[in-house]
Amino acid sequence: MSTEPLVTVENLGRIYDVSKPWLNRVVERAPIQLLTAAAGVTFSIARTETFALVGESGSGKSTVAKMVVGLVPPSSGEVTIDGISMTHRRRSSERERLRRRIQMIFQAPYASLNPRWRVENIIAEPLRAFSVAQNADEQHKRVGELLRLVGLDPADGVKYPHEFSGGQRQRIAIARALSAQPEFIVCDEPTSALDVSVQAQILNLMRDLQRQFGLTYLFISHNLAVVRHMATRIGVMYLGRLVEVSPARELFRAPRHPYTRMLLDAVPDLDLTERGRKAVEGEIPNPITPPPGCAFHPRCPYAFERCRVERPVLLPSAPASVACHAVEEGRIKPGAGVLEGAVTP
């Protein structure tokens, strides 16, 4: 296995113009309004690894995912996959070939499946588009294999998406993603719309497929327990920026950034250990006018003067990286995570 990462994301940023229409702006003298959905996002993903992004709604997870697969052009920064830049404006045949090796799975499986197509055609589309299958026979055979792989019956191919349950539709979406034989799959909240029992089936399936085909995942979820189950490494986002990047186990054993701690404390406690879920103060601020300095400071129990004026940058805090002045100055130590006191085999 090479140590060279498969995916490199460097200083990625995206700004949206959310101003009122030009005429209104002129008439009402409204200013131009820019929303920074992502800024300075840097991480890399090794082959066969699962890198997860977590954070509250609006923190920029989907924006990063869409830039990584090339669905949204970045305002700044660069995405490189297997040494090929995804973000150069010039079309290149190399990049076209790369497209096949990258697939995406979304939260709402129904929205991403064409309701008028039979399932076999939905799954076969990438086969045709990327000429993976040589002829109709081979294509049919391959679709059958894919359906079986995701736990459906090859006979289901003649049905339409509405004839399936939510979990089955997500299986179809996965089968379609796999049909192009990708190496890298970006999964944006793949199980958030599903019941836990169905979620367990899908998460197990995704892990089995990863092992079987050596897949690399960028996995997005707001559910920390799901991320804990899937990820090798985790990036925590807050208002468009990464505040902590850490090996999965370390993040849960010893969270460093105050926001990470807050997220962990907020997770409902199933074990009834009376860990005591701490109610968190405040909510994500307006992303159009983020607080100056550290954007988390209005909610941070450790905030001090420096936090209000200077934005912290990601600095190593081995084996993690953290963007926090208090951590940098050693004023707060890695926190007691949820793994503390857990029985280690």
């Binding site: 836990v196 979620q199 367990a200 327990a225 799901v226 189950h229 199933l270 074990d271 949820v338 857990a342």
Partner: peptide
Amino acid sequence: GAIPKLDS
């Protein structure tokens, strides 16, 4: 058993 747990 289907619920992913933080400490598992």
